[in-house]
Design a protein around this nucleic acid. Sequence first.
RNA 1: GCCGUCUUAGCUCAGUGGUAGAGCACUCGCUUCACACGCGAUAGGCCACAAGUUCGAAUCUUGUAGACGGCACCA
Length: 952
Amino acid sequence: MELAKAYDPKAAEEDHYKRWEESGFFTPEINQDPAAEPFSIVIPPPNVTGSLHMGHALQHTIMDALTRWKRMQGFRTLWLPGTDHAGISVQRKVVEQLKKEEHKSPLDIGREEFVRRAWKWKELYGNTITEQMRREGASVDWTRQRFTMDDSLSLAVRNVFCTLYEEGQIYRGLRIVNWCPKDKTVLSDLEVKEETKKDGKLTYLKYPVKGTDKTITVATTRPETMLGDTAVAVNGNDERYKDLVGETVLLPLTTREIPIIADEYVDAEFGTGAVKITPAHDPNDYLVGQRHELQQILVMNMDGTMNAEAGPEFDGLDRFVAREKVVEEFEKLGLLEKVDDYEITLPVCERCKTIVEPILSEQWFVKMDEMRDLALELMRSGGVPHFSPQVPHEKVYTAWLENLKDWTISRQLWWGHQIPAWYDEDGNIFVARSEEEAIAKSGGKSLTQDSDVLDTWFSSGLWAFSTFGWTGDKGEKQLIAYSSQLTDGIQTDLETFLPTDVLVTGRDIIFLWVSRMVMLTKKFTGQNAFEDVVITGTVLGKDGKPMSKSRNNGVDPIEMFDKFGVDATRIYLASIATGADIRWNDVGVETYRNFANKIWNATRFCLMNSDGGRVSEFALAIITPDPKRQAYMKEEQTRRQSQTPERDWYEIYSEIAIEERANVYSLAERWIISRLNRTAIGVHRALETYQFHEAVQLLYHFFWDDFCDWYIELVKDDITAEQASRERDISRTRILSVLEESLRLLHPFMPFLTEELWQKLPGTGSYLHNSAYEDAEKTIMLTQFPTGSTGLVDKAAEVEMGAVIDLIKKVRNIRAEMNISTSIKFAVYIAASSAMQQVFAANEPQILKLAKAESLVIGDTLDVPKASAKAVTNDASLAIPLEGLIDFEKERERLSNQIAKLTEEKTRLDGQLSNASFVERAPVEKVQELRDRQIELENQIGTLRNNLNSLE
RNA sequence: GCCGUCUUAGCUCAGUGGUAGAGCACUCGCUUCACACGCGAUAGGCCACAAGUUCGAAUCUUGUAGACGGCACCA
């Protein structure tokens, strides 16, 4: 079989996903093992208005790698997908559409029609992300896809709301809230962002004191709110104003007389020391107002214009127009003291950037005390959830919880979960799970439902359990059941998959979403939502700033997929240190595109030389320790009773003691098995601790350096021998088996490429699957993930191979430095210990080939002419006679450089070892290690000096 | 104001209380029968700065500077 010369990702990406999905590989039902441990992840549901960005691609890559890795280990694995209804975003889209296409406002068509259109919009445009996720190769279970407004999830929302209300944890109250005049809805504290305005103004207004000719000056950044002032406050200890407390101010532009009061809230040091109090438009003033029983006068409408309370002059004016007018009027009255430039940070709406107006409004709130304590207790007693990276997120999360305030959950929108509260004509509230129930509660009155909907995060806060069928109905039969013919009963998804194992998300929604899931899940199911939370970093634009439309520095994942392939993009994203921000650069992806091509071509080479060889389960058994599989294969072996090449490999390798293997196996084979196992162990360990970048580094260097640069080159002659032979078949079987194992290790990161190649390898089949998936159609994604075995890490082989590699590198170095053409062959003289002499002799053909040498002369000493280039390694000294080719000047320089380098190291060592306190206090092994190295260096330097002298 | 993170090779980034690493770029070779998206060989760092702890610090502590993030306040 011959592959194309270069890897074309598109071809591989087209077919496999469809087959995986249609074959049910993504569903937990594929697992036939009744005793399988569950592993579950719920996706952070993207907004239906969203399209895939790099942050998603990063998070999805990590979730998919974890999911595939666990699935390959035989876990009953579920990665649950879905989307969020995204209240404000969808509402805004539909309003825009309505305006553009029909020149209508929501009020023109009414609530029912509006909601109908929002659903239509969602059906039409809400699947962008889910389609893009298929392109990513995400192994999510589409049969369990959820939407936050699905019937069962909505039922869960109503039940949670009612329960909290009945417990007194949800209440309706009049508070100063964050109001967005553009969206005309209240916002929670978390949806308000700060924006610094350098051109702000601080306006000083003089208020006349009644019955005197005095004035009292207050400073404000929002002059228009003075129309709602109901007091002026000073600090009671402020000598300047002591005698004014209790006096009355004639509030300009109005007919009101308001008191001067003393309150400790006022900082005498700040501004004029006197503060205008507007209880209906400022949270602090609101509190002052409560303490002094002040009137609350709302002077603004919900769209940011002034209302009748502001007076006929101002009624209907926009808040900013009114602001200017107030200042003008004060100027006219001679009551404007001054206007200072003032840098101010303003609260703005997270989504539309409109300046948020603090305003008095009646809203629904959740008391967070009880749930906060639940979450804090989880963290304190069990460290749950465990954040990766732990620093700084655990501390920030905990500190936030400790200062948690009540949560504003009502939103003045139509798209979302309408609040299950009804009112009678007298304003009595009836909270119920349905209108019928509410009417019943009211004794049959005619009721009107609260027109507000719930904060989107209220429903997504239930995501960790509502997606598994929890509705909160008492004694209900759970809606979604996982049925297994292998268990005695029926276990619900909720029982099987909650708590989920890990949540992967960005740090921006730790408070908004993560914390609320922790609290609500514990409260309503008694379970933890998840054990671990992996917080990914932010993918920044090429300019080092967060990607955004306004900066136009975004990088579209789909474009990267098209340009470099999905797998290359995925493994690049996985190569970023967990939690670290990364500045995007295409070169990084290109590196992994090249890596993908390298894998392709290594496989291409193996396939070009695969006749007589095949992937062997027996070869693999020794590098994938799975007792169940090994037992199965023993049986299989007996059953087959056939003489296959892999038989030798398995029987001999697994049954021979490690120190005996050298007698039977080539160094290259012992070495690559050792490296493969070391890599598998490292990758497995890295994934267990969410160190994805470490796993990627290990795989990259194992595959490229160890497998391609050394193993393939070392065994190339055996593999490509023209004559068919039993030895050639065995060699081919071995390299195919190592390759197959490598593809499995790579699969969680590069699913398409590995499946494409694995399917082409001779001898692959469903018998290689993890025993939980024996019956499934053949696919790499259900094979056993290699976890490696320490028993197969062969230190002797690594030391010996290291000596061979060093030797070859020195010879290559001499050739390069001496500018000797590869067409010129030469003899290499080697002096080494007798043990190493054996190693070099045993690998002579490989050394000759890779060093492009003609012959080796191995002995105890070097016996070479003066015109030779020389070098030393840790294990040998070598010389290459180069009569007529050697440039003595260059050779002297080369030797001197090496001596200088080694001497520098030795000087450092000498210093350290002559330090008495080091020798005394450092661990013995460390001291010994340095002493050994010191002797080694002494020898090498001595040899090089002699070499240099012999050139003089 | 409070809390926190980062500062390592030209660039983008890993990393560990015990001789500094990768990819890319650079330099020098190579039409070597899988791969030029390649192969081979070099070069390149007082690990921001200062002090401390330690036998030993790039790694731990404190401080300084710069970059960034979160929270709070803002009359």
